[in-house]
Amino acid sequence: MDWNDMKDELRKIRAPREEPGVPGPAAGAANDLIARLKAHEAEERAKLKQSRTLFLVAIGFTSFALVGLSLSWSGPLPAYRVLHQGALLAAFVYIALGLQKKLWNLARVDYTQPARSFLAAAERRYVFMTPRDYVVMAVGLLLLGVASAPYVVGLFLSRYVSREHYTTVLALYCLFYLLVAAMGFYFTHQNWRRDRAPLLADIRRLRNALENNEDVQ
């Protein structure tokens, strides 16, 4: 058998029809497929909207708390309270925008680009953290740290610690906060190593095979 015979033979392979026994793409089957495609699209859009709603509620709640606090406070609001609520609001907005962008990028995998670019884009999605992600994470942690500090000052320090030990306790708070952040980072990295690192290795092997003329199995 030669290549041309093989190609001719291949032409006999037909894609399964939605309705068994119907020769050619039946109109009913196509309609059914289109309906399912539309349903899938709607489902994806709904997921994105849900996540956005969650953060909009959080932002709205924080804004409401800030306004409520400034109205109910007798006299001008203390600076640390404004700082706290402002930082909390900023942190929520920041995280919401970041997550929205991430979801947006995930939902928009471009399958129409050449395989090489497709793999390069997949590599960017699967990599643990880009330098930009580190900057985003640092800003987010800083905002959350500033947002939670007034709780330590207002609810804990002023009640249980004498004024001369404030600096020590604040330093301990910073240390504790950094420890929690480091633990979060560690466990995230472990999860990534388990779930995504092997996939990233596969993507890189394939990409290398395409770019460097190397074969991979």
């Binding site: 399958y111 129409t112 050449p114 395989a115 497709f118 793999l119 997949a122 092997p198 996939l199 596969d202």
Partner: peptide
């Protein structure tokens, strides 16, 4: 070409999930 790209890229995506499932 457009169809080939989408098909090949989707199949590449499948190869990745297949390896994950095997693991």
């Amino acid at each position: 070409t457009w169809i080939f790209r989408i098909t090949v890229n989707t199949c590449l995506g499948y190869l990745r999930t297949q390896r994950r499932e095997q693991r």
